[in-house]
């Protein structure tokens, strides 16, 4: 079966998906990588500054990709699910860090 062509129908919902769950996802990826590389989040450190640039870049990528979804709901579900997953891992990792540190 041939797929119907992509259109900009529902662009507002798609854009909002890039903006809101897209932001949560990019910040989540940043925090996840921060946990992995042991960043302290101090803005003067190299790791924190690179992570900040990374978050901006991921967000820009999300905003460009969100318009390629067939529906706005699809974009929300995909970014939302990924963001939830990343933040769940972050919560677990900070829990482990706290347990390891105490």
């Amino acid at each position: 079966m041939k797929e119907s062509p992509l259109t900009n129908k529902g662009w507002a919902l798609k854009t909002l998906a890039g903006l809101i769950p897209g932001a949560a996802l990019s910040l989540g990826v940043m925090v996840l990588l921060g946990h992995v590389c042991g960043s302290t989040g101090n803005p003067m450190t190299l790791s924190a500054q690179w992570l900040m640039w990374l978050a901006a870049l991921v967000w820009v990528v999300c905003l460009n990709v969100c318009l390629l979804f067939r529906t706005g709901l699809g974009a929300w579900l995909c970014f939302g699910w990924l963001a939830c997953l990343v933040w769940l891992i972050n919560t677990l990792m900070s829990g482990f860090n706290a347990a390891g540190g105490s």
Partner: peptide
């Protein structure tokens, strides 16, 4: 973004 880092890292 740095506020989020400060909060979570």
């Amino acid at each position: 973004i740095f506020t989020v880092q400060a909060e979570f890292l």
